[in-house]
Design a protein around this nucleic acid. Structure first.
Length: 273
DNA sequence: ACTAACCTGTAA
DNA sequence: TTACAGGTTAGT
């Protein structure tokens, strides 16, 4: 569910509530949701520790604990982290509950794709997909020349390239379609076929669209909520995602869809070449 | 490079 | 009943 703007919004809303709070107790209702480290269980590692910082990397949340431990969270499609100021009964799909001095954090995930891993902080960025994660598009690590060189090496469609987390971190199906519309690029173009001008448009569109997503506090078509249970607003300003059969806001032509990499892709055949 | 798998819910 | 959903990975 959440892409970069949603995870960033969750990160910020969690930070407000949890920095400095100690995890007093953890209840795990679905054990597959959590993973420990070496011979230590997730609960053993995290219990009794204070949260000192919360970061985002791509679509991952990094909850840093004292004593050198970090909880890596990926929400996949339907994962949610809900902060409640007072004790709350777990809901049908609540898999983990963290109890603090003030309030509780509930991990909820209808489709059970998401995972929480406890790892040593200095191993966090070397763990799994995080080790191969591309640059953060909103940081100075995202460089036009490097992005250009990477695209020219790829023999996949540009939409597939945008979804490749090792090429660029944090873009998912909604923002990929929005970025390609904004850049005026047809999603089935081969990545290596883009001109420098087109890559420049794409580079700029990635940054402006993701930034707009963050300002809107994410996109809530269905499941997404921030840590306070609030919806985002970006669904009210999308150009193409979810608008198959409706008219293009720019030229009026009926928007079309196709399937790329198993993902529905919506585009305007007039505005995107 | 494409598909199935992991899951459940909702809408067609 | 079938298709599809903000993701990733392990298989052909």
């Amino acid at each position: 569910m959440p892409e970069l703007p949603e995870v960033e919004t969750i990160c910020r809303s969690l930070t407000e509530h949890l920095i400095g709070q100690t995890i007093q107790q953890i209840q795990v209702y679905w054990p597959f949701a959590v993973t420990g480290w070496a011979d230590m269980s997730f609960v053993e590692i995290a219990s009794g520790k204070k949260i000192i910082a919360i970061d985002r990397r791509g679509k991952y949340l990094l909850i840093h604990l004292q004593q050198g431990w970090t909880l890596i969270v990926h929400l996949r499609m339907t994962g949610r982290l809900n902060y409640y100021p007072a004790a709350m009964n777990p809901m049908k799909h609540t898999h983990v509950v963290f109890c603090f001095d003030q309030g509780e954090l509930h991990y909820h995930d209808t489709r059970k794709f998401g995972r929480l891993q406890a790892v040593p902080t200095d191993e966090a960025l070397n763990t799994g997909a995080l080790a191969r994660m591309g640059p953060e598009p909103l940081s100075e690590d995202f460089r036009f020349e490097i992005f250009t060189a990477a695209l020219q090496k790829k023999k996949v469609k540009i939409k597939t390239a945008l979804l490749d987390q090792s090429l660029i971190a944090g873009i998912g199906n909604i923002y990929a379609d929005e970025v390609l519309f904004t850049a005026g690029i047809f999603p089935e173009r081969q990545a290596a076929s883009l001109s420098e001008t087109e890559i420049q448009k794409l580079f700029t569109a990635i940054r402006t669209v993701l930034q707009a997503g963050i300002i809107a506090r994410g996109t809530s078509f269905r499941d997404y909520r921030d840590a306070n249970g609030e919806k985002g607003d970006f669904q009210n300003q999308v150009q193409v995602y979810g608008r198959t059969g409706l008219s293009c806001r720019r030229c009026g032509k009926t928007l079309e869809k196709l399937r790329i990499n198993g993902r529905t892709t919506v585009y305007c055949r007039v505005c995107q070449k």
